[in-house]
């Protein structure tokens, strides 16, 4: 992972997303109306501040000790109530602070070693290929 950016006040992150994240969302939320709601909510990550407990009005947490973080988006879909979106900071070009959206799962799903293998694998690909 690149060196964390410091000084977050008024910082606006560049948001990038890896392709498997879209596939996660498509499977998790097959209805476009709900998926579009999630996508709108994800824009809030532009104002993520690691020193604040909320991103605008969304709760987020660090997934210790993985180096990843989760954003909890409540959708009231009737089927999927809350989505856990995994993201992490990787700024290959430090003047452009960048957050990567790695994927998502239902918040009531277990985040164990298998899930960690999947999302840390995706972060490894980001680190190997992103510029």
């Amino acid at each position: 992972m690149s060196k964390p950016i410091t000084g977050f006040e008024d910082l606006e992150w560049r948001l990038r997303i890896c392709r498997p994240a879209f596939q996660d969302f498509q499977r998790l939320l097959p209805r476009y109306r709900v998926r579009s709601e999630l996508n709108r909510q994800l824009h809030k990550l532009r104002w993520w501040d690691p020193n604040e407990p909320l991103v605008i009005d969304l709760q987020w947490n660090r997934v210790e000790p993985t180096g990843l973080a989760e954003l909890l988006v409540q959708l009231d879909d009737g089927v999927v109530d809350t989505v856990r979106v995994l993201f992490f900071e990787h700024s290959p070009n430090p003047p452009v602070p960048t957050l990567w959206i790695l994927g998502g799962m239902r918040s009531d799903e277990t985040f164990g070693s298998l899930q960690y293998a999947i999302y840390s694998g995706r972060s490894t690909i980001v680190q190997a290929r992103a510029d």
Binding site: R14, L15, R16, I17, C18, R19, L42, H43, W100, I101, I125, V126, R129, A130, D131
Partner: peptide
Amino acid sequence: GSYGLDFR
């Protein structure tokens, strides 16, 4: 870019 997509 070289990998992934610009979300916006």
